[in-house]
Design a protein around this nucleic acid. Sequence first.
DNA 1: GTGAAAGCGCTAACAA
DNA 2: TTGTTAGCGCTTTCAC
Lengths: 345, 345
Amino acid sequence: MAVTLQEIAERAGVSRGTVDRALNNRGRIRPEVADRIRQIAEEMGYRPNRAGKALAMARRSICIGVVLQEVETMFMRGILEGIEAAREELGHLGASVVLKEIKGLNTKAVIDAMEELRSQNVHAIAMNPSMNRRTKETIDRFADEYGIPIVTFNTDLEDCSRLCYIGQNTYECGRAAAGLMGEIIGGRGEVGVITGYEANPSLNKRVEGFRDEIAARFPEIKLVGVQYAYNSDAIAEDITRELVERHPEISGLFLTVNVEQGVCAALEKEGIIGRVKIISNDLNENNRKLLCDGNIAFVLEQNARVQGYEPIMVLFHLVFDGEKPQCEFQYTDLTIRTRYNLPPV
Amino acid sequence: MAVTLQEIAERAGVSRGTVDRALNNRGRIRPEVADRIRQIAEEMGYRPNRAGKALAMARRSICIGVVLQEVETMFMRGILEGIEAAREELGHLGASVVLKEIKGLNTKAVIDAMEELRSQNVHAIAMNPSMNRRTKETIDRFADEYGIPIVTFNTDLEDCSRLCYIGQNTYECGRAAAGLMGEIIGGRGEVGVITGYEANPSLNKRVEGFRDEIAARFPEIKLVGVQYAYNSDAIAEDITRELVERHPEISGLFLTVNVEQGVCAALEKEGIIGRVKIISNDLNENNRKLLCDGNIAFVLEQNARVQGYEPIMVLFHLVFDGEKPQCEFQYTDLTIRTRYNLPPV
DNA sequence: GTGAAAGCGCTAACAA
DNA sequence: TTGTTAGCGCTTTCAC
């Protein structure tokens, strides 16, 4: 049986309450006594019992808020799954999770949601933020003035008081894609990149990583253009057709966004599907099928579930155990998917 | 605030104890009453509070036993890490984990360890079993006679009363290796396989999966021999040298066991390191370095941590919540490692 | 500063 | 068959 507060109290010749005050730095205790108790606890190998703690704290029931902007719908389901899993797990311990879902990108709606959560007395907030000054200011206000810790996920907002960021290292993702591309096209030939919006920093970093790594490791590979498809399959199809016409010998395409449908349609019509190697990002039903059929070589996955789950857990541990996250950037593992290691549906 | 037993009791006009008996099928209750209570609980959306339950059960403290045979030392550290993580997490809830580590393969030692755990009154056992009849019989006896549920991990023992198996699908692992190999050598040329012991079914399945997939998808690739290195780098070096002499044009090698050191040494001496693509299994410091240097193309990783962690958690949920595992085979996700997605050290 | 005591949700032993 | 009660380990309030 594990060591309990009571046992420490007996050993120290004080009461449970005193031990509690000593170990949790609650004040109202003579420093010498506190030190002695802490030492005894250490000696006895005391580790607080989470169940007891959770039960006792059930009165001031912990509540974590989540603000979710629906940017990429395919990806969101995974995030929601992760949030649900966290809610389930915390529910067991008497804590709750409040989710505010916002359709589309909308800074005002995000800030309103945050204020609403605050008025509901949440202890912490996990959010995927919009990229602008007002959001940044709001985060700072919450963290610094109201003492509501914030964790960002999926997209980060640097230089503000958010506790940490949980999500993909998009630059490394681009590099990984370049490495794989280099391998499968034999280290030479022409490759193209099709991405989303110019203004999206995450996508830009993927492109940058890809470009840098190709330049560094595969001097014989030529990057023949980075095109913007604005997340539209129709545009992607046009781009691909033009690209293939200009570069009939093209060997590979790196897609930073989910426009596989359009790209593959174009290649199909040109009769070169399968010959042009495709590496894409973020698994969904769509590219999953293309992967199985051999039309796409690799899909790089950023574990969506983890991005929904972890921020909530990090915040819970902070509020519940007082444990700060280990590092400011908690990058999710980059998963390389082929037709052979698809996750069960 | 979540629904409690007390609230249900009040609504039903009975006592807490009665509700407890109804919801946990403990008997000693009139069936009609039990039904009515269950219905009320359902209506109110009752979900038991794990903290309360854990606390109350702390008296009959749950204990999970683990029997670990140290087969591949490199891999074991990860498993131990997973066991440690599970112990940590369960410790929070007042449950404990007892580990019996056995050096080398030793059926008698495994069975002795199981008996020892039984005499210590563990509630369940997770183990990586030895492949033979006596172990199988012991598992059956434990599960059927003593009611001690057993989960196997890392290597499975089919046709016995073990609850489920958690580990890699080694056949699929072989297929994945074949798919990657086909891609990076351009779908033609000669490839070889270096494996461990003839008697090891896991390794054999990897080889089989590799062979089948090469045959099915890459008719222009020729498999030029499957060799046994008995987990020895020296033997692997000899094998590689001979293989390269007989097949100077060889394009790839699939290693089912950790003999990268020997293989690379031979290729180095022949001056063809880097040209011959290597795909290997199970990440360690050794092949991690070779991966970074570009001497190995891919390492297929079977998440060791998960294999230590999950069996314990599955058993805990069974004993604690009465939740049976969803399926008999819980295959761990196959992770494809390149120099770009190595886990942090 | 410190101790005593109530109570969080649940289980289990005992009483009725 | 049902109700009552004593904890499990911890926090928190109140009294001293």
